[in-house]
Amino acid sequence: MLVFILNAGSSSLKYQLMNPENSEVLASGLCERIGIDGRLVHEANDKKIKEEISMPTHKEAIEIVLNCLTNGENKVINNIDEISSIGHRVVHGGEYFSKSVIIDDDVLSKLEKLIPLAPLHNPAHIVGIKICRELMPTKPNVAVFDTAFHQTMPASSYMYAVPYADYKDHGVRKYGFHGTSHYYVSNEASKLLNKENTKVIVCHLGNGSSICAVQDGKSIDTSMGLTPLEGLMMGTRSGDLDPAVISYLMQKKEMSAEQLVNYLNKESGLLGVSGISSDLREIIEASAKGDERAMLSIDMKCNRIKKYICSYAGMLGGVDAICFTAGIGENADIIREKVCSGLEFMGIKLDKEKNINRMDGNREINHDDSRTKIFIIPTNEELVIAKDTYELTKA
């Protein structure tokens, strides 16, 4: 079985063609600037092609991708009939979905009802789903939700301290995101620990970042909330702040609510504090040259990660493993070192040599006498999507 994995954004489209039975990726790529001018990056057969190509809508983008898969020197299948099913990454499943589901008209209707909770993401996912149903009408489609893994959180974790009617009437609660990644990494950690009853903290650190407390394979709390804006300081997102800052800035800067939400999502975080970039690599480089705001940005980011780790260790009643994943978590040794520094009282002791040793795959970077394991585990959300799609549609 071959699964076509799709992640549709407002002007982009990420994809993979994977065999979930052996985890082989036959092709992968990215369509960018859909509706503007169009750019394709396609990898297959150990070759990468980049092409400027018109993509007026997502339909043309998907047609171009399917053509790349079935034609030319880099083709990997003879025709689209070799694709067994399509797995879609969907950001928000609300309280409707606690696991992946085969998409039918009822599922689509519920996704449309959830648009107010994810106005930037769910509309694009719905477009991608509808196009795939049109272009490949005999192929089953599966939705795999970023929020689903966090549906095991107790009410004490997901409720906000606002009038209960706002939860019942408007769905105001914590939903959490990056669930597919947190599920994959925590499951890999349990394998490395070689035990079933585990207490794991997963730090998914990329341009968007979140932390999750996982007990016995289930999410019991996570840092992102109603939207991905809550929690850690990120590339351009502010993360946690006093809610009164919102009305204060609206008055001082004469901003509308929409402008302020954009300000906190796209102009804040590492970019806003450093004044340099949202890319941590550039900030680390500036910090090494003595830039004070770059150093401040790094310290702020690490302090907030550390706060969540300590908080979740308390909720879990101890911790078996701290896991670092995603672009920053897997590659920024200075961040891992700063986060773990000072946590020796919790049994968290980093081995500095192991930490800076670059290796592929899962690896352990704690000191030999550390009571808590520290793992770097590269995430693989696409594999989770492919396997869920396979399991639901193989019959």
Rank of each mutant, 00 (worst) to 15 (best):
S156T: 15
S268E: 04
V245D: 10
Y160Q: 01
Y160T: 11
L232Y: 01
L280A: 02
K191P: 02
A213N: 01
K174G: 07
M159E: 13
G176L: 09
P163K: 02
L229F: 09
T198Q: 03
H182Y: 07
S210A: 10
A257E: 12
K195I: 01
S219N: 12
G208H: 02
H150R: 11
A213Q: 00
L249Q: 12
H182D: 06
Y158E: 11
N194Y: 02
T147P: 08
G272Q: 07
G206Y: 02
S247N: 14
L205S: 01
M250K: 14
C203Q: 04
N207M: 03
N194V: 04
E258W: 01
H204G: 03
D146V: 05
G217V: 00
F177L: 08
T222E: 06
L232G: 11
G231T: 09
N197K: 14
K199T: 04
T198H: 03
S209D: 08
L271C: 04
L249I: 02
Y158R: 06
Q259I: 04
V162G: 07
G179T: 09
L264C: 05
N207F: 07
F149R: 06
H204C: 12
Y158I: 09
Y160W: 12
D216F: 03
Y184H: 10
F149L: 12
Y167H: 14
V172Q: 01
L241M: 15
Q251W: 03
Q151V: 06
Q215V: 07
D216R: 05
G176F: 09
T227R: 13
I220W: 08
K191H: 08
T152F: 06
V202E: 06
D146F: 04
H150T: 10
G179M: 04
S209P: 09
K252W: 04
A213T: 02
S278K: 14
S256G: 14
S190N: 05
D166S: 13
G275W: 00
A161K: 14
L226W: 14
E188C: 08
G272E: 12
A213P: 05
V172N: 05
P154R: 11
S190P: 03
E230F: 09
Y263F: 15
S181R: 06
L192A: 13
S223A: 11
M224P: 05
V245E: 10
H182F: 00
D216Y: 03
A244E: 14
F177V: 06
S256D: 06
I276T: 00
S156K: 15
C212D: 03
K191C: 03
D279A: 10
G206E: 02
L205W: 00
M250D: 05
L264R: 02
L205D: 00
A189K: 05
V202A: 03
G269H: 00
R237Y: 07
L270H: 13
M153H: 08
L264T: 11
E188D: 02
H182P: 05
D279N: 02
C212Y: 06
S186H: 08
L271Y: 08
V200S: 05
D221I: 12
D216A: 07
H170Y: 15
I276N: 01
